[in-house]
Simulated assay, not measured.
Amino acid sequence: MKKDTLVDLSLLRVFCVLMGERSVSRTAVRLEMSQPAVSLALGRLREHFSDQLLMRGRGGMVPTDRALTILPRIQSLLIDAEALAEDTAPFDISACNHSFTIASPDYLAPIFLGDVIAAARREAPGVRLVIRALGPDFDFETALAKGEIDTVIGNWPSPPNYLRRSVLLEDEVVCVMGKHHKLAQGRFTQADYLAAAHIAPVSYSVAHRGLVETHLGRLRLVRDRTVALSYFGMAPYLLLESDLLFTTSRHFASYFAAFLPLAVRTSPIRFPAMTFYQLWHERSHHAPTHRWLRDLITRSRRSIDSSPSARPPPGT
């Protein structure tokens, strides 16, 4: 870097996003900038560091050795700069224009996310929220460490122990099926459960299995995973005209059973409670804006408790 010049922090932010996206166009979309503006920023960065930093390759832009060397130091500098700004400025969430990214599968009842957004709009109308899906190809632990996402909502039996976490909700595991299903009434045994055809969620983390499969594995039991589904919110609709079962949390099942012809039944296999966590990295633990976001999410979980659909229907 030239010794007689300083790099603008906004340029460093563009550099970090470029290193993650390896694309000028995707960086422009993510930062809500024009492509020419991103290209101009890259040109200024190249001048500052006397290096090409990112060059065209077959699969996108390829970082130089220099870019890979300075990336961790720049990320650390931006974290410190953000923390310093938040420590010195009076905190007023109503004037905040920060953008937050929440990563979560869609296995919480929609009323929860609706309450998060409604509360954010009331308290911080300038804040932008990005809701990002989790999937097996997304390394959420690294994304938290880099600040690419701000918090993760998950329900692993054993979440990563080095991340900060709080419990959002503990819920009973139940079975949901169409009201026409032969198991919707009467006797429902473990043998019935294992013999049935099931909708099974696709794991959203390579390293962390879901509660249902983890518990069945411990019991050395195997169910028929007839349909593997990445979209939890679609599962209730697939039950309406099929003989499938879906094993999920009580609040999720009850929410959809309130307006769809579904039956919710206590599982004949005793599963541990399904615990939903909020996870975040130490880097953002003390930041006032991030504390507000986590508190907002915690408060919004009460919408599940107060919803009539969250109460067990009679006879289940």
Rank of each mutant, 00 (worst) to 15 (best):
Lys2Asp: 07
Lys3Gln: 04
Lys3Leu: 05
Leu9Tyr: 02
Leu11Glu: 04
Arg13Pro: 06
Val14Ala: 07
Met19Asn: 05
Glu21Ala: 09
Glu21Gly: 01
Ala28Tyr: 09
Leu42Val: 05
Phe49Glu: 02
Ser50Asn: 11
Gln52Met: 06
Gly57Glu: 05
Gly60Lys: 02
Ala67Leu: 06
Ala67Gly: 00
Thr69Glu: 15
Leu71Phe: 11
Pro72Lys: 15
Ile74Leu: 11
Leu77His: 14
Leu78Phe: 00
Asp80Asn: 10
Ala85Arg: 03
Asp87His: 03
Thr88Gln: 00
Ser94Leu: 02
Cys96Ile: 08
His98Arg: 13
Phe100Tyr: 11
Ile102Ala: 07
Ala103Leu: 05
Pro105Val: 09
Pro105Gln: 10
Tyr107Val: 08
Pro110Ile: 06
Arg121Trp: 01
Asp139Gly: 07
Asp139Leu: 10
Gly147Phe: 00
Pro159Phe: 02
Arg165Ile: 02
Glu170Thr: 09
Glu170Trp: 03
Val173Ile: 12
Cys175Ile: 10
Val176Ala: 10
Phe188His: 11
Phe188Met: 06
Leu194Thr: 12
His198Ala: 12
Ala200Arg: 09
Pro201Tyr: 04
Ser203Thr: 14
Tyr204Val: 15
Ala207Cys: 13
His208Val: 01
Gly217Asp: 13
Leu219Val: 07
Leu219His: 10
Val222Asn: 14
Thr226Phe: 02
Met234Tyr: 05
Ala235Gly: 07
Leu238His: 15
Leu244Asn: 00
Arg250Met: 13
His251Asp: 07
Tyr255Asp: 10
Pro261Phe: 08
Leu262Pro: 12
Arg270Gly: 13
Trp280Val: 03
Arg283Gln: 12
Arg283Cys: 08
His286Ile: 03
Ala287Gly: 09
Arg291Lys: 15
Arg301Tyr: 06
Arg301Ile: 11
Ser303Trp: 03
